[in-house]
């Protein structure tokens, strides 16, 4: 019979993402992260497909899917205090995302470049704002 801590979803996460040593367990953790992150992101973006109107569905483009998968695994590997530090920094990342999305609205509204060009090039804006906030606020 399994020990209580290894039963259910919590047990699965602890077995795959818990603190281990060695290259095999690191590879296992990365594969587990990839699967959990991929599933959550695909699930939230599918919600964005089914909701109407379009503007409301757009909310799911900024769903906390990566945060949920990463924080769940971080709590299992490094504990709640470590995950709380990540969440504090996430506020700066979210401010950068707001500015990124605002710039995307302004440029796409002018209908010149395609969405793939705008959203890809503007990732540099996200990086610049996020690391500027890190430098002045979090460093």
């Amino acid at each position: 019979m399994l020990a209580p801590a290894t039963r259910g979803m919590r047990g699965i996460i602890e077995r795959h993402a818990g603190p281990h040593s060695g290259k095999d367990s690191l590879a296992g953790q990365l594969i587990f992260r990839f699967l959990v992150g991929g599933l959550l992101v695909a699930a939230f973006s599918s919600l964005g497909d089914v909701f109407k109107p379009r503007g409301f569905a757009g909310l799911f483009g900024a769903a906390p899917s990566v945060a949920l998968s990463t924080l769940t695994l971080t709590i299992a590997t490094n504990g709640k205090s470590y995950a709380a530090i990540e969440a504090h920094s996430m506020i700066a990342g979210a401010v950068a995302f707001f500015i990124y999305a605002f710039c995307a609205v302004q440029i796409l509204f002018r209908r010149k470049p395609s969405a793939v060009v705008v959203t890809s090039v503007l990732l540099t804006v996200w990086l610049a704002v996020a690391f500027s906030l890190w430098f002045v606020w979090l460093r």
């Binding site: 992101v41 939230f44 973006s45 964005g48 799911f60 483009g61 900024a62 769903a63 906390p64 899917s65 990566v66 945060a67 990463t70 924080l71 971080t74 490094n78 470590y82 995950a83 530090i85 990540e86 969440a87 504090h88 920094s89 996430m90 700066a92 990342g93 979210a94 950068a96 995302f97 990124y100 999305a101 995307a104 796409l108 395609s114 969405a115 793939v116 705008v118 959203t119 890809s120 990732l123 996200w126 996020a130 690391f131 890190w134 979090l138 460093r139």
Partner: peptide
Amino acid sequence: PVVGGLFLAFPAIFPASAT
């Protein structure tokens, strides 16, 4: 975790969904 946390709000899926 301070630098890693920034990427929890990285626009990972938005470029693909907008496209």
